[in-house]
Design a protein around this nucleic acid. Structure first.
Lengths: 216, 216
DNA sequence: GTCTATAGCGCGATAGAC
DNA sequence: GTCTATCGCGCTATAGAC
């Protein structure tokens, strides 16, 4: 707009490259929201374009196909899923690690509900795009972290519990407040969930997991 | 096939009426499976027809629109959701009632995964078709049953816990084994979940809920 | 890089023969 | 009641002017 030839080489954070990145980010964010709301098939590229404030053709210019854009959205999300499990290390305090993990997962449910919903939708329909991720990264991480939990049990630091199913239940219990927020809110008689609802949910899940592990 | 005028009035379980009912049931079952696998938008009436072994036009003949068929599938499912909560009555034994409820919910996850998936998909995308059900029947039932749980707490029969969030977590923990079965199976290194997986899941959820309620 | 216009096609729904 | 053939819309994707 201002200049026809932005000083690319001098200020690499501005100019064309930055503009492209900014537009891509805008499309990705809009796409995550629309995919979360309507699923892959229910989403139209026109809907994404409208949410991003762009003409439809630009979405295809930046990402090629709807599939490719969906994959890009998913790839961003998968990173968020594994990272918080780093909490679990042999020498961590079990009560602290479990509490911290649940708080992190609940933070994502509250602040990145669309990421959770896109992931849930993908898994619900057979996880066709992320089978590799599930069977490689996620499976390996669960194996490693459940070994840590098992060592805590063997050392008598937490009560005996199936480590893998404990993780599944923690995922389910925290993600349900993002994925099924409408149901939770409606049953609570509200339009949407607020701070206090997430606080109560978090307290309940922490209470349940600590009680299970004999840490109360 | 055999007769042009089946004795409708004499044998109401055979003849045209029964044939219609049988065809409707066949379509409903096929539709539940396809909707579970692909979601509403991802489902084609041709796909349902193929799964039911019928030409596409017949699906429209029996149910009119894809929407109406989807509603019929949902209506069948909603009945299954409320019934098991009848377990919770003032004079029931808390440990037995909670255990029995979790077993029933887990039984549905194992034996009616498609029902769970269709419901999950509907809620995930804003529950546009079942808002009334959520705000009327389900909300009222949760109110009634959480009052029972609260009375158990007041009587010192179970430990203090938020009754409504306890229900949310039980729903999430049990339904996740239907809705996210692919993820669970993949992380466990299997093609699909078997008896022993559901048994381990059930034991873990029961252990967690009883520990939370101070019933161990 | 941005946008308008449109090609091409898959889908829901229906007409009409049987 | 069953089925084939088809209509017409809405969608993904692209061509081509700017």
């Amino acid at each position: 707009m201002q200049t026809e030839l932005p000083a690319e080489t001098e200020t690499p954070d501005r100019g064309r490259a930055a503009s492209r990145k900014a537009t891509e980010a805008k499309i990705l964010e809009a796409a995550e929201g629309v995919f979360a709301e309507r699923g892959f098939s229910g989403t139209t590229t026109a809907g994404i374009a409208e949410a991003a404030g762009l003409p439809k053709a630009n979405v295809h210019y930046y990402f090629g196909t709807k599939q490719a854009l969906y994959r890009a959205v998913l790839d961003n999300i998968l990173d968020l899923w594994l990272a918080p499990m780093a909490e679990f290390t042999e020498d961590a305090d079990p009560a602290l690690a479990l509490t911290s993990y649940i708080k992190t997962k609940m933070w994502y449910s509250k602040n990145r509900p669309n990421a959770s919903k896109v992931f849930a939708n993908e898994v619900l329909h057979g996880a066709p795009q992320i089978t590799d991720y599930l069977s490689d990264h996620l499976r390996q991480t669960v194996e490693d972290k459940s070994a840590v939990l098992r060592s805590w049990i063997d050392q008598g630091r937490i009560a005996p519990v199936d480590p893998v199913h404990l993780l599944f239940v923690i995922w389910a219990a925290t993600q349900t407040y993002a994925d099924f927020d409408i149901q939770v809110a409606t049953v609570l008689g509200k339009q949407s969930l607020d701070e206090s609802d997430f606080a109560a949910a978090e307290a309940t899940v922490i209470q349940m997991v600590l009680a299970t592990c004999g840490l109360t």
